[in-house]
């Protein structure tokens, strides 16, 4: 102790003073890290733990090993949800090109363009619950606008939300409405940053239309496209509110996705299977992890450059 205290008194610098620079960023990060650990990291491991148990959320939990996963393996409802999740992932990506083209269309200076822009952005501002309700009425087989319009051509009526073949597509279409608006606003801000000199140079080289878009504009929009991909894929995987509002997973479970199925078995009015719900959550987490790892990797690569 005495020998250690000696050099300190010589330099008159405490441990804190010597290490201040190294420690300060960690101190600033500490609250964030703490909350992230308690509310995100810890629950992930807890879910893993619960998924190995048989627990109704009220009484005693019993350890049952991988039984929940084995049951998941042979559960037709799980495969329906998985299939719907893939449909969501694929079709939801349509929001990106759609958003891009609306953004290109709106990226001009006309009187009142701000109004048009805000009208196109409107669906993203309103709550998903309202979007779900509006589309539920739109699809209603008795008085819905869709079937009235189909009636003009002598078609229909189609019971979109009550038919196991159409229901997922119907809900995805409803989800695309606000998601397109979101992608649009990302591209609109991206277009502001497009370098006019490059466009000018492209013009001189006689680039027009598609070639201009593909070779000159899109490469400059790469950051916006990246963010649009990230939010759309995450949005597709966490699609829950629209399904809950529009169909509750029905008819007979054909519009469920993993997140809704998890809620149904563990937390809904009829659900008491925390372990099974946690097993679904783990599977969903692993799927998300694939994407998140890819995104993190590509961000890391960008920063290295």
């Amino acid at each position: 102790m005495t020998t250690a205290a000696l050099p300190q008194s010589k330099t008159h610098r405490s441990w804190w003073h010597r290490n201040q620079i190294r420690i300060t960023p960690w101190l600033f990060l500490a609250p964030g890290i703490l909350f992230f650990a308690v509310y995100v990291i810890l629950p992930i491991f807890q879910s893993f733990g619960i998924s190995l148990q048989d627990w109704d959320g009220l009484g005693e939990a019993t350890y049952i090993g991988t039984q929940n996963y084995e049951e998941l393996w042979s559960d037709p409802a799980f495969y329906t949800s998985l299939k719907n999740n893939l449909l969501w992932l694929l079709l939801y990506l349509l929001a990106i090109p759609a958003g891009l083209f609306i953004a290109l269309f709106l990226n001009q200076t006309v009187t009142g363009i701000r109004l048009y822009k805000s009208l196109f952005f409107f669906p993203f501002v309103i709550s998903q619950v309202v979007v779900g309700l509006v589309f539920t009425w739109f699809y209603d087989p008795a008085f819905g606008l869709l079937n009235i319009m189909l009636g003009w051509f002598g078609a229909g009526p189609i019971n979109v939300l009550g038919d196991p073949n159409y229901v997922t597509y119907g809900i995805i279409a409803a989800g695309l409405w606000p998601q397109t608006a979101y992608c649009m606003i990302l591209y609109l801000t991206g277009l502001n940053a497009v370098n006019p000199e490059l466009i000018e140079a492209g013009r001189l080289d006689n680039a027009k239309g598609w070639r201009m878009l593909w070779h000159v504009v899109l490469p400059q929009l790469k950051p916006a496209t990246f963010i649009a991909f990230v939010v759309t894929i995450i949005g597709a995987l966490r699609s829950f509110d629209l399904i809950s509002v529009m169909t509750q997973g029905g008819p007979f479970g054909s519009s469920r996705v993993l997140s809704f199925y998890m809620f149904e078995v563990a937390l809904s009015e009829y659900g008491f299977r925390m372990g099974y719900g946690a097993a679904i959550a783990v599977v969903l987490f692993l799927i998300m992890l694939l994407f998140i790892a890819y995104f993190l990797y590509s961000m890391y690569r960008e920063e290295r450059r």
């Binding site: 699809y139 087989p141 008795a142 019971n159 939300l161 009550g162 038919d163 029905g250």
Partner: peptide, 8 residues
């Protein structure tokens, strides 16, 4: 006997 589209 039942109405059509009752699932909706």
């Amino acid at each position: 006997a039942f109405i059509d589209n009752h699932t909706a």
